[in-house]
Protein backbone atom coordinates (compact mmCIF):
# COMPACT_ATOMS: atom_id res chain seq x y z
CA UNK A 1 0.00 0.00 0.00
CA UNK A 2 2.86 2.30 0.89
CA UNK A 3 4.36 1.87 -2.55
CA UNK A 4 1.15 2.87 -4.28
CA UNK A 5 0.83 5.93 -2.08
CA UNK A 6 4.42 6.84 -2.77
CA UNK A 7 3.84 6.48 -6.47
CA UNK A 8 0.77 8.71 -6.23
CA UNK A 9 2.73 11.35 -4.36
CA UNK A 10 5.31 11.29 -7.13
CA UNK A 11 2.72 12.37 -9.65
CA UNK A 12 1.90 15.56 -7.76
CA UNK A 13 4.86 17.62 -9.04
CA UNK A 14 4.11 16.32 -12.53
CA UNK A 15 0.48 17.38 -12.25
CA UNK A 16 1.55 20.85 -11.12
CA UNK A 17 4.03 20.98 -14.01
CA UNK A 18 1.28 19.99 -16.45
CA UNK A 19 -1.02 22.74 -15.17
CA UNK A 20 1.80 25.29 -15.52
CA UNK A 21 2.60 24.31 -19.08
CA UNK A 22 -1.03 24.21 -20.11
CA UNK A 23 -1.69 27.55 -18.46
CA UNK A 24 1.31 29.15 -20.09
CA UNK A 25 0.19 28.05 -23.56
CA UNK A 26 -2.06 31.08 -23.95
CA UNK A 27 0.64 33.44 -22.77
CA UNK A 28 3.30 32.18 -25.14
CA UNK A 29 1.58 33.90 -28.02
CA UNK A 30 3.74 36.67 -29.36
CA UNK A 31 1.56 39.75 -28.97
CA UNK A 32 -1.89 39.98 -27.50
CA UNK A 33 -3.75 36.65 -27.48
CA UNK A 34 -7.09 38.41 -27.55
CA UNK A 35 -6.18 40.37 -30.65
CA UNK A 36 -5.06 37.19 -32.35
CA UNK A 37 -8.22 35.35 -31.38
CA UNK A 38 -10.46 38.16 -32.49
CA UNK A 39 -8.34 38.95 -35.52
CA UNK A 40 -9.84 35.88 -37.10
CA UNK A 41 -13.26 37.42 -37.12
CA UNK A 42 -12.36 40.57 -38.95
CA UNK A 43 -12.82 44.09 -37.63
CA UNK A 44 -13.30 44.38 -33.89
CA UNK A 45 -13.60 47.44 -31.69
CA UNK A 46 -11.38 48.23 -28.75
CA UNK A 47 -14.46 47.65 -26.61
CA UNK A 48 -14.84 44.09 -27.82
CA UNK A 49 -11.21 43.40 -27.01
CA UNK A 50 -11.61 44.70 -23.47
CA UNK A 51 -14.78 42.68 -23.04
CA UNK A 52 -13.10 39.49 -24.11
CA UNK A 53 -10.04 40.19 -22.01
CA UNK A 54 -12.31 40.42 -19.00
CA UNK A 55 -14.11 37.24 -19.97
CA UNK A 56 -10.84 35.33 -20.12
CA UNK A 57 -9.60 37.04 -16.98
CA UNK A 58 -6.58 38.36 -18.82
CA UNK A 59 -6.87 41.74 -17.14
CA UNK A 60 -5.96 40.25 -13.78
CA UNK A 61 -2.42 39.56 -12.47
CA UNK A 62 -0.77 36.40 -13.82
CA UNK A 63 -0.65 34.57 -10.47
CA UNK A 64 -4.33 35.17 -9.90
CA UNK A 65 -5.11 33.96 -13.40
CA UNK A 66 -3.18 30.75 -12.79
CA UNK A 67 -4.96 29.95 -9.57
CA UNK A 68 -8.37 30.67 -10.96
CA UNK A 69 -7.48 28.48 -13.96
CA UNK A 70 -6.50 25.59 -11.70
CA UNK A 71 -9.51 26.12 -9.48
CA UNK A 72 -11.77 26.08 -12.52
CA UNK A 73 -10.27 22.83 -13.76
CA UNK A 74 -10.70 21.21 -10.36
CA UNK A 75 -14.27 22.47 -10.02
CA UNK A 76 -15.15 21.05 -13.41
CA UNK A 77 -15.66 24.51 -14.89
CA UNK A 78 -13.47 24.27 -17.96
CA UNK A 79 -14.42 27.56 -19.58
CA UNK A 80 -16.30 28.38 -22.75
CA UNK A 81 -15.28 27.75 -26.31
CA UNK A 82 -14.64 31.03 -28.10
CA UNK A 83 -15.86 29.66 -31.42
CA UNK A 84 -18.79 27.46 -30.55
CA UNK A 85 -19.84 29.52 -27.53
CA UNK A 86 -20.64 26.33 -25.62
CA UNK A 87 -18.93 25.01 -22.49
CA UNK A 88 -15.60 23.36 -23.30
CA UNK A 89 -16.63 20.44 -21.15
CA UNK A 90 -19.64 19.62 -23.33
CA UNK A 91 -17.53 19.91 -26.46
CA UNK A 92 -14.89 17.56 -25.11
CA UNK A 93 -17.25 15.01 -23.58
CA UNK A 94 -18.99 14.76 -26.95
CA UNK A 95 -15.70 13.91 -28.66
CA UNK A 96 -14.07 11.78 -26.00
CA UNK A 97 -15.81 8.40 -26.52
CA UNK A 98 -14.77 8.18 -30.17
CA UNK A 99 -11.15 8.77 -29.20
CA UNK A 100 -11.26 6.35 -26.29
CA UNK A 101 -12.71 3.62 -28.48
CA UNK A 102 -10.09 4.19 -31.17
CA UNK A 103 -7.21 4.38 -28.70
CA UNK A 104 -8.16 1.20 -26.87
CA UNK A 105 -8.60 -0.60 -30.17
CA UNK A 106 -5.16 0.59 -31.24
CA UNK A 107 -3.55 -0.57 -28.00
CA UNK A 108 -5.19 -3.97 -28.40
CA UNK A 109 -4.03 -4.20 -32.02
CA UNK A 110 -0.48 -3.24 -31.13
CA UNK A 111 -0.25 -5.81 -28.36
CA UNK A 112 -1.85 -8.54 -30.45
CA UNK A 113 0.63 -7.94 -33.24
CA UNK A 114 3.67 -6.84 -31.25
CA UNK A 115 3.97 -9.43 -28.52
CA UNK A 116 3.56 -12.63 -30.57
CA UNK A 117 5.81 -11.23 -33.30
CA UNK A 118 8.47 -10.37 -30.75
CA UNK A 119 8.26 -13.76 -29.07
CA UNK A 120 8.47 -15.56 -32.39
CA UNK A 121 11.42 -13.47 -33.46
CA UNK A 122 13.27 -14.18 -30.22
CA UNK A 123 12.53 -17.91 -30.27
CA UNK A 124 13.64 -18.19 -33.89
CA UNK A 125 16.64 -16.00 -33.43
CA UNK A 126 18.98 -15.62 -36.42
CA UNK A 127 16.39 -17.18 -38.73
CA UNK A 128 15.17 -15.34 -41.83
CA UNK A 129 11.88 -14.84 -39.99
CA UNK A 130 13.68 -12.98 -37.22
CA UNK A 131 15.63 -10.84 -39.68
CA UNK A 132 12.50 -10.01 -41.66
CA UNK A 133 10.53 -9.27 -38.50
CA UNK A 134 13.22 -6.95 -37.18
CA UNK A 135 13.39 -5.07 -40.47
CA UNK A 136 9.60 -4.75 -40.72
CA UNK A 137 9.54 -3.40 -37.17
CA UNK A 138 12.19 -0.85 -38.07
CA UNK A 139 10.13 0.20 -41.09
CA UNK A 140 7.16 0.42 -38.73
CA UNK A 141 8.82 2.97 -36.49
CA UNK A 142 10.24 4.88 -39.46
CA UNK A 143 6.90 5.29 -41.17
CA UNK A 144 4.83 8.47 -41.04
CA UNK A 145 1.42 7.49 -39.72
CA UNK A 146 -0.52 9.60 -42.18
CA UNK A 147 1.21 7.85 -45.03
CA UNK A 148 0.37 4.42 -43.63
CA UNK A 149 -3.24 5.49 -43.18
CA UNK A 150 -3.50 6.75 -46.74
CA UNK A 151 -1.83 3.64 -48.11
CA UNK A 152 -4.22 1.40 -46.20
CA UNK A 153 -7.18 3.39 -47.54
CA UNK A 154 -5.72 3.20 -51.03
CA UNK A 155 -5.34 -0.57 -50.83
CA UNK A 156 -8.27 -1.75 -48.72
CA UNK A 157 -10.92 0.86 -49.47
CA UNK A 158 -10.17 2.32 -52.89
CA UNK A 159 -8.53 -0.74 -54.39
CA UNK A 160 -10.09 -3.82 -52.85
CA UNK A 161 -13.33 -2.32 -51.45
CA UNK A 162 -12.78 -4.52 -48.38
CA UNK A 163 -12.93 -2.11 -45.48
CA UNK A 164 -14.37 1.37 -45.00
CA UNK A 165 -11.82 4.18 -44.92
CA UNK A 166 -13.53 6.68 -42.67
CA UNK A 167 -16.09 7.66 -40.00
CA UNK A 168 -17.26 5.49 -37.14
CA UNK A 169 -20.30 3.86 -38.69
CA UNK A 170 -21.87 3.88 -42.14
CA UNK A 171 -24.81 6.29 -42.44
CA UNK A 172 -27.24 3.59 -43.55
CA UNK A 173 -26.78 1.58 -40.36
CA UNK A 174 -28.87 3.00 -37.51
CA UNK A 175 -26.59 3.75 -34.57
CA UNK A 176 -27.47 2.22 -31.21
CA UNK A 177 -28.83 4.55 -28.51
CA UNK A 178 -25.99 6.36 -26.76
CA UNK A 179 -25.21 5.01 -23.32
CA UNK A 180 -21.45 5.08 -22.99
CA UNK A 181 -20.69 6.72 -26.32
CA UNK A 182 -18.47 3.78 -27.19
CA UNK A 183 -20.22 2.36 -30.24
CA UNK A 184 -19.02 -1.19 -29.65
CA UNK A 185 -20.31 -1.23 -26.09
CA UNK A 186 -23.52 0.54 -26.98
CA UNK A 187 -24.35 -1.86 -29.79
CA UNK A 188 -23.75 -4.83 -27.49
CA UNK A 189 -26.02 -3.24 -24.89
CA UNK A 190 -28.69 -2.72 -27.53
CA UNK A 191 -28.13 -6.19 -28.96
CA UNK A 192 -27.59 -4.54 -32.33
CA UNK A 193 -25.15 -6.88 -34.05
CA UNK A 194 -25.31 -5.12 -37.41
CA UNK A 195 -24.05 -1.96 -35.76
CA UNK A 196 -21.45 -3.92 -33.81
CA UNK A 197 -20.04 -5.55 -36.91
CA UNK A 198 -20.21 -2.26 -38.80
CA UNK A 199 -18.30 -0.49 -36.06
CA UNK A 200 -15.68 -3.21 -36.01
CA UNK A 201 -15.18 -2.85 -39.75
CA UNK A 202 -14.90 0.91 -39.45
CA UNK A 203 -12.45 0.59 -36.59
CA UNK A 204 -10.13 -1.82 -38.40
CA UNK A 205 -8.06 0.54 -40.55
CA UNK A 206 -7.81 3.48 -38.13
CA UNK A 207 -6.90 1.20 -35.23
CA UNK A 208 -4.28 -0.53 -37.34
CA UNK A 209 -2.83 2.83 -38.41
CA UNK A 210 -2.80 4.22 -34.90
CA UNK A 211 -1.38 1.03 -33.44
CA UNK A 212 1.27 0.35 -36.08
CA UNK A 213 4.22 2.29 -34.62
CA UNK A 214 3.35 0.98 -31.17
CA UNK A 215 3.21 -2.61 -32.38
CA UNK A 216 6.60 -2.18 -34.04
CA UNK A 217 7.97 -0.86 -30.79
CA UNK A 218 6.29 -3.59 -28.73
CA UNK A 219 7.76 -6.18 -31.06
CA UNK A 220 11.26 -4.80 -30.60
CA UNK A 221 10.99 -4.62 -26.82
CA UNK A 222 9.41 -8.07 -26.59
CA UNK A 223 12.16 -9.53 -28.73
CA UNK A 224 15.03 -8.12 -26.70
CA UNK A 225 13.33 -8.86 -23.40
CA UNK A 226 12.64 -12.44 -24.46
CA UNK A 227 16.22 -12.92 -25.66
CA UNK A 228 17.37 -11.84 -22.22
CA UNK A 229 14.96 -14.14 -20.41
CA UNK A 230 15.44 -17.20 -22.59
CA UNK A 231 19.08 -17.39 -21.53
CA UNK A 232 18.13 -17.74 -17.87
CA UNK A 233 18.59 -20.92 -15.89
CA UNK A 234 14.95 -21.22 -14.97
CA UNK A 235 14.05 -21.64 -18.62
CA UNK A 236 16.53 -24.51 -18.96
CA UNK A 237 15.26 -25.94 -15.69
CA UNK A 238 11.69 -25.84 -16.99
CA UNK A 239 12.83 -27.78 -20.06
CA UNK A 240 14.65 -30.23 -17.79
CA UNK A 241 11.37 -30.79 -15.98
CA UNK A 242 9.88 -31.95 -19.27
CA UNK A 243 7.68 -28.90 -19.87
CA UNK A 244 6.42 -28.55 -23.43
CA UNK A 245 8.31 -25.98 -25.50
CA UNK A 246 5.17 -23.89 -25.96
CA UNK A 247 4.62 -23.77 -22.21
CA UNK A 248 8.29 -23.02 -21.60
CA UNK A 249 8.03 -20.00 -23.87
CA UNK A 250 4.70 -18.69 -22.65
CA UNK A 251 4.42 -19.70 -19.00
CA UNK A 252 8.06 -19.50 -18.00
CA UNK A 253 9.75 -17.06 -20.37
CA UNK A 254 7.06 -14.60 -21.48
CA UNK A 255 5.70 -14.03 -18.00
CA UNK A 256 9.09 -12.81 -16.96
CA UNK A 257 9.70 -10.90 -20.18
CA UNK A 258 6.43 -9.01 -19.78
CA UNK A 259 7.75 -7.11 -16.77
CA UNK A 260 10.03 -4.74 -18.71
CA UNK A 261 7.64 -4.70 -21.69
CA UNK A 262 4.90 -3.10 -19.60
CA UNK A 263 7.14 -0.22 -18.59
CA UNK A 264 8.49 0.52 -22.05
CA UNK A 265 5.09 0.34 -23.69
CA UNK A 266 3.61 2.72 -21.11
CA UNK A 267 6.47 5.18 -21.50
CA UNK A 268 5.86 5.29 -25.23
CA UNK A 269 2.12 5.71 -24.92
CA UNK A 270 2.66 9.38 -25.80
CA UNK A 271 3.35 8.59 -29.43
CA UNK A 272 0.11 6.64 -29.63
CA UNK A 273 -1.89 9.47 -28.07
CA UNK A 274 -0.19 12.02 -30.34
CA UNK A 275 -1.06 9.88 -33.32
CA UNK A 276 -4.73 10.47 -32.53
CA UNK A 277 -4.65 13.82 -34.30
CA UNK A 278 -3.24 12.36 -37.50
CA UNK A 279 -5.38 9.24 -37.64
CA UNK A 280 -8.62 10.98 -36.75
CA UNK A 281 -7.98 13.50 -39.48
CA UNK A 282 -7.30 10.90 -42.14
CA UNK A 283 -10.27 8.73 -41.22
CA UNK A 284 -12.66 11.63 -40.49
CA UNK A 285 -12.97 10.30 -36.96
CA UNK A 286 -15.00 12.72 -34.81
CA UNK A 287 -12.69 12.59 -31.78
CA UNK A 288 -10.64 14.74 -29.48
CA UNK A 289 -7.63 14.76 -31.80
CA UNK A 290 -9.59 16.52 -34.53
CA UNK A 291 -10.98 18.95 -31.98
CA UNK A 292 -7.44 19.91 -30.92
CA UNK A 293 -6.33 20.58 -34.48
CA UNK A 294 -9.46 22.55 -35.34
CA UNK A 295 -9.23 24.59 -32.15
CA UNK A 296 -5.59 25.41 -32.75
CA UNK A 297 -6.36 26.56 -36.25
CA UNK A 298 -9.16 28.81 -35.01
CA UNK A 299 -7.22 30.08 -31.97
CA UNK A 300 -9.84 28.65 -29.63
CA UNK A 301 -7.41 28.66 -26.72
CA UNK A 302 -9.68 27.43 -23.90
CA UNK A 303 -10.47 24.27 -25.87
CA UNK A 304 -6.81 23.77 -26.77
CA UNK A 305 -5.73 24.10 -23.16
CA UNK A 306 -8.19 21.62 -21.77
CA UNK A 307 -7.75 19.02 -24.50
CA UNK A 308 -3.97 19.16 -24.31
CA UNK A 309 -4.28 18.74 -20.57
CA UNK A 310 -6.54 15.74 -20.98
CA UNK A 311 -3.92 14.07 -23.16
CA UNK A 312 -1.21 14.71 -20.58
CA UNK A 313 -3.39 13.41 -17.76
CA UNK A 314 -4.21 10.30 -19.77
CA UNK A 315 -0.51 9.66 -20.19
CA UNK A 316 0.08 10.05 -16.46
CA UNK A 317 -2.84 7.74 -15.68
CA UNK A 318 -1.65 5.09 -18.12
CA UNK A 319 1.81 5.12 -16.57
CA UNK A 320 0.29 4.75 -13.15
CA UNK A 321 -1.67 1.75 -14.32
CA UNK A 322 1.49 0.35 -15.87
CA UNK A 323 3.32 0.72 -12.57
CA UNK A 324 0.58 -1.13 -10.75
CA UNK A 325 0.66 -3.80 -13.41
CA UNK A 326 4.41 -4.00 -13.01
CA UNK A 327 3.99 -4.63 -9.32
CA UNK A 328 1.32 -7.21 -10.06
CA UNK A 329 3.54 -9.06 -12.54
CA UNK A 330 6.68 -8.93 -10.46
CA UNK A 331 6.37 -10.69 -7.11
CA UNK A 332 9.75 -9.32 -6.06
CA UNK A 333 8.33 -5.80 -5.69
CA UNK A 334 4.82 -6.81 -4.78
CA UNK A 335 3.18 -5.00 -1.92
Amino acid sequence: MDKILQRLLHTIPVLIGISLIVFSLMHLTPGDPVEIMLGEVGYVSQEDIELMRAELGLDRPLIEQYFSFVAGILRGDWGTSLRARVPVKALILERLPATIELTIAAIVVSLIIGIPAGVLSAVRRYSWLDKLGTLVALVGISMPQFWLGLTLILVFSVGLHLLPGGVRLAFDIPAPPTVTGLLLVDSILAGNWTAFWGTMRHLALPALTLGAPMSALTMRVTRSSMLEVIRQDYVTFARAKGVKEMAVVIKHALRNALIPIVTVVALNMGSLLGGNMIVERIFSWPGLGQLVVDSIRTYDYPVVQVSVMIYALTYVAMNLIADLLYMRLNPRVRI
Binding site: P13, I21, G270, G274, G275, V292, R297, V304, Y311, Y315
Partner: peptide, 23 residues
Protein backbone atom coordinates in the same frame (compact mmCIF):
# COMPACT_ATOMS: atom_id res chain seq x y z
CA UNK B 1 10.60 16.90 -12.59
CA UNK B 2 10.62 19.16 -15.64
CA UNK B 3 11.50 16.15 -17.78
CA UNK B 4 8.76 14.03 -16.18
CA UNK B 5 6.27 16.78 -16.90
CA UNK B 6 7.33 17.18 -20.52
CA UNK B 7 7.22 13.41 -20.99
CA UNK B 8 3.55 13.48 -20.03
CA UNK B 9 2.69 15.61 -23.06
CA UNK B 10 2.39 13.60 -26.24
CA UNK B 11 5.12 15.09 -28.42
CA UNK B 12 2.97 15.83 -31.44
CA UNK B 13 0.17 17.36 -29.39
CA UNK B 14 2.53 19.65 -27.54
CA UNK B 15 4.30 20.66 -30.75
CA UNK B 16 0.99 21.32 -32.52
CA UNK B 17 -0.30 23.44 -29.67
CA UNK B 18 2.96 25.38 -29.50
CA UNK B 19 3.07 26.08 -33.23
CA UNK B 20 -0.55 27.10 -32.84
CA UNK B 21 0.22 29.76 -30.26
CA UNK B 22 3.62 30.80 -31.61
CA UNK B 23 2.38 31.02 -35.16
Amino acid sequence: RVIDTLLAFPYLILATALVGVLG
